[in-house]
Amino acid sequence: MKKNRIIAQIGLYVVLILLAILFLFPLVWMVVSSFKTEPEIFADLKSFRAFVPYTFSLDNYTGVFERIPFIRYLLTSTLYVSVIVLLGLFVNSLAAYAFARMQFKGRDLLFSIVVALIIIPFESILLPLYLIIDEFDWLNTYQALIIPFIANAFNIFMFRQFFLNLPKELEESARMDGASTIRIFFQIVIPLSKPVFITVALLTFITHWGDFMWPLIATTDESVRPLQVGMQFFFHQPPVRYGHVMAALTMATIPLLIIFVFFQKYYVQGIASAGMKN
């Protein structure tokens, strides 16, 4: 009996290790290759050496910085995504609070419209949105990357669900003391709702960090080009050097990695809880 169990455990580990290899080999190859020269990368393709970091040259990294304004792409992405997150938290939570706690004419109708909007796929409004942004003269500006994405129907929905589950008593007693709605919202509701704020912030950040199609269309200038689009351009910019591309990809992975290392707990809780409620 016990012996069987040990065998089962060993079997389990073998499966886990094989799977781990499958999931990690491309990334290991990416990082390891970024430190090798071009001939080394190609020579190692047919052997296990492809995954062995036997040299450590930073030439590919300096090569990337010589060929593209990598830091600029990185800052552009960080800046515009952060602004979407911050403004989005503010705008969407305010609206959600109105839907959760206030009485006003047309509230329920308005909210059901918001819920219905969740279903509209962004891809289907791409062209008209482009024309609207053009009409505002916002092509190639940060506005184009940020403003259309501040309000988010799904985030309003998430916030509202959370606010509905908050105990009303605290807010009511504050109101008795004569506190205004705005004050109640900022001083009582927001501190109580920290988890949902963090979750929505993370989800928004990760979604927009991966944005590709819209920035590709709305920005043509290097000065407002986000990282994802920059990577795609670099990938197609001759001469195509595996080492350079690998170095750029490795660096481009770091920001999201940091986010996950620090916020993983909230992220998983967040999507899971969103899943339950839907």
């Binding site: 705008v91 305010l94 839907f99 206030m102 909007l117 062209l127 949105l129 259309p148």
Partner: peptide, 25 residues
């Protein structure tokens, strides 16, 4: 006034950048 004020920014943005383009499409 406050409740509309709370909802208005999100609603206006949703209208201009989601509903309007959907209708235009």
């Amino acid at each position: 006034f406050t409740s509309y004020g709370f909802a208005a920014p999100a609603m206006i943005l949703l209208f201009v950048f989601l509903i309007l383009p959907a209708i235009l499409a």
